[in-house]
Amino acid sequence: MAEPIRMAFSPCPNDTFVFHALVHGQVPGAPAVTVDYADVDVTNGAAERGEYDLVKVSYAALPWLLDKYTLLPCGGALGRGCGPLVLTREASAGPETVAGKTVAVPGDRTTAYLLFRLWAAEHAPAEVVVRPFHEIMPAVAAGEIDAGLVIHEARFTYQRYGLHAAADLGDWWESTTGLPIPLGAILARTDLAERTGVTPAAAAAHVRASVNAAWADPAASRQYVLSHAQEMEGPVVDQHIGLYVNEFTRDLGTDGYAAVDELLGRAATAGLVPPVVIPRLSAV
């Protein structure tokens, strides 16, 4: 009997919504799945150690992971109008806002931080500190740090902390590239079939089926999504899913792959990541 697939993704509503059917054995023909829930800075490190068969990571981490993993063309988070925000206590705007300041980021190999480094290339902060993303807004509001780079549902809640958006890195990215912003990727171990009997292409087909099931019956996953949404209220959960689960979740397509190539190509040219070629994989 094949071993269960070991999987890790965040407890955020977009991930639990997308993977509900797969996790709960509702995808015909898919193997059993065991899940660990962790923020992306944790899963990036776990993937570098090869700890999971399927794992949600930052696109920015791919150059360090593709020796062990294959990028799946579905299940991830790309989109428009969904980029990270740079938040400050004072109303201000532009890269000069962070020059010489202390900035908290949600992980040093996150897509958010890579975009931040490209955006602030000529206005480097004095210090960058890594904090769990849910701690960043309170720390900025309390004056513990000068600015914070936030992701996820913080787009909908930062005003509650009296904070201001100095920059929307998604808007900046889209205005300079015309492409969606690549945030989170789903990877499968290249040797997945040896341990589980499931090829990466077959895993992609199962993930896509889970996406389709989520859209076909959104109510089916509601309790599961809310149980992992921490202190997020229902309307914010719905906004979160609506923003991060879109056509690119079902299939990266031409624009999705172009966005990944552009992000990592720009970063490699700037010397921020090693050069990498992203292979294309089609689901069976």
Score class of each variant (00 low, 15 high):
P235G: 08
L187T: 03
T176C: 05
M232Y: 10
S175Y: 00
L187Y: 10
L192D: 10
G234L: 15
S175A: 15
T254V: 05
D251M: 06
D238G: 03
L192V: 04
A229L: 12
L192H: 02
V225T: 13
A209G: 08
V211A: 06
I181P: 00
G253M: 07
L252E: 00
A216Y: 05
P218S: 10
A205L: 12
Q223D: 12
W215P: 11
D217P: 07
V237R: 04
A209F: 08
T176F: 08
E174R: 10
P235W: 10
R222V: 13
Y224N: 03
G178V: 08
L179M: 08
L226N: 14
H228M: 06
P235Q: 09
L243Y: 00
D251H: 13
G184N: 05
H206I: 06
P200S: 07
A185L: 02
A214V: 13
L243P: 04
R189A: 06
H240Y: 10
V245A: 02
V211G: 06
D217M: 09
V237H: 07
V211K: 07
A216G: 06
T176Q: 15
I241T: 06
T249C: 02
Q230H: 14
D191W: 05
T176P: 08
A185Q: 02
G178N: 09
L183S: 13
N246M: 00
R222Y: 10
G197F: 10
V198T: 14
V211L: 05
M232N: 12
V245Q: 02
G184F: 06
W215A: 12
A203Y: 05
A188D: 04
H240D: 11
Q223L: 05
N246Q: 01
E231K: 12
Q223W: 01
T249D: 06
F248W: 00
T249F: 04
S175E: 11
A229Y: 10
V236Q: 09
A229F: 14
A205G: 12
L183E: 13
I241S: 01
P180F: 08
D191Y: 06
R208N: 07
L252G: 01
L192Q: 05
V198W: 06
A220E: 15
L243R: 13
